[in-house]
Design a protein around this nucleic acid. Structure first.
Lengths: 225, 225
DNA sequence: CTGGCTCGTTAACAATTTGATAATATAGAA
DNA sequence: TTCTATATTATCAAATTGTTAACGAGCCAG
């Protein structure tokens, strides 16, 4: 269901490349490497990575130049750019961000921190957030325990019911089209009838005892906020 | 048209608060301050800032706690959270980001870098929130929520009514020919009578209670600007 | 293995909302 | 005025959703 996230790393120091690659792969990313600026651009075009990590000081083209090139190309609008440098000077820091970089990290790099920062950026980029507990009004939704608590009373929802409620509540107020609900909760390849969603909505409303979900006729459903 | 960006800063050191405030205000932001965690939560609820800068070590509630609270509240989904600390240890860095922080900055802070980083974050945030809400005069039209709000009162429009209003409001002031309206809202292959548009316009006017749509006799309709 | 449970799904039907039209009234321009 | 375009209203058909019951799959305890 989920395509792996592709990350391109460009650095001329082979050992850094290797260490970072190792940790990124271990963290579940798909990694592509480049050893200079030209190769970075080449591979960026070839693989369309989701994130590009650029060392500032590289042969052929430096990190700033690559960043500038990428930001001038609409195909890379949504591509995250993280700049790395050994120099901790304010001017390049600001320059890197102004050229369109999304983050600027000073060496020495802790792989864990790097991964954390990249994840934080992705979290912002993808509206679908992976939260542990959602609190809205009197309702609390705990993904870890698959349970909901309303005014202190715990309600146990079935899996699909829970997933549906969670989806809506995670972006409370926003209307979800029936098609979106189907693909998010049931998956793209599953075909179920139209009434299935209604029935699950009904069960949620019945179990919680309050109508926190509003029907937008002809469009979809939304969690009241 | 553009409301100023509101930033809440919470730090117990008065001089840091002052320095950062000064630079943020100079950079064009609207600034709110808090001197401890509880006050931060209070003011966050009161002012709904676009960005919240939290010192980790604060009285009452520390930055992590405030961050966790905010991230558990969907009202702050789109609020950027930047964490500040004097300690540069990997563990808190990662913890801060995992709790939902968008950035983690170690003191001493360069105001310019701080502003750069916040701007970079906002740059990423804009496309996801922007464009979908139209605000004209006292009327707000939110396509994501399929609702309209007039002077704080929400009005529920039916699908066609909403689409028609959205079309006109998206290019307020411009006159839409009846034919344009038909093809945009109803589609090219659907054939409906001429009176149908009138009736929908009427329903919109009735529901909103104000006449924000002007008839251009013999031509079409336009949203008053 | 069996009976009893829950869950996910569907069908069938009820209830509701919406959209379109016709009929009539009104307003605006020549 | 007179003619035409639009506004208004009521009505009906169509689309959409709500509700209930029922069925089969899977799970678990005994």
């Amino acid at each position: 269901m989920e395509a792996p996230i592709k990350i391109l790393i460009a650095d001329d120091e082979a050992d850094i490349l290797e260490i970072i690659s190792f940790h990124l792969i271990k963290a579940g990313f798909e990694v592509i490497t480049a050893k200079d600026g030209s190769e970075a651009i080449e591979k960026a075009n070839q693989f369309s990575p989701d994130c590009i990590i650029l060392d500032i000081m590289m042969p052929k083209r430096n990190g700033f130049e690559v960043c500038e090139y990428l930001r001038g190309n609409p195909g890379f609008d949504k591509t995250l750019i993280v700049l790395l440098t050994a120099l901790n000077d304010e001017t390049s820091h600001i320059k890197g961000l102004e050229l369109g970089g999304d983050d600027f990290i000073t060496k020495p790099i802790s792989p864990k921190v790097l991964i954390s920062r990249i994840s934080a950026l992705f979290r912002r980029l993808q509206p679908s957030t992976g939260q542990k507990i959602i609190n809205i009004n009197d309702l609390s939704i705990d993904i870890a325990q698959y349970k909901t608590t309303l005014k202190g009373v715990t309600h146990v929802l079935a899996k699909k019911e829970f997933e549906l409620l969670y989806l809506l509540a995670a972006q409370a107020g926003r209307v979800f089209l029936r098609g979106e609900i189907l693909s998010q909760v049931w998956g793209n390849d599953v075909i179920v009838g139209d009434r299935t969603i209604d029935v699950h909505i009904r069960k949620i409303r019945a179990k919680l005892g309050i109508d926190c979900i509003t029907t937008v006729k002809g469009v979809g459903y939304k969690f009241d906020y």
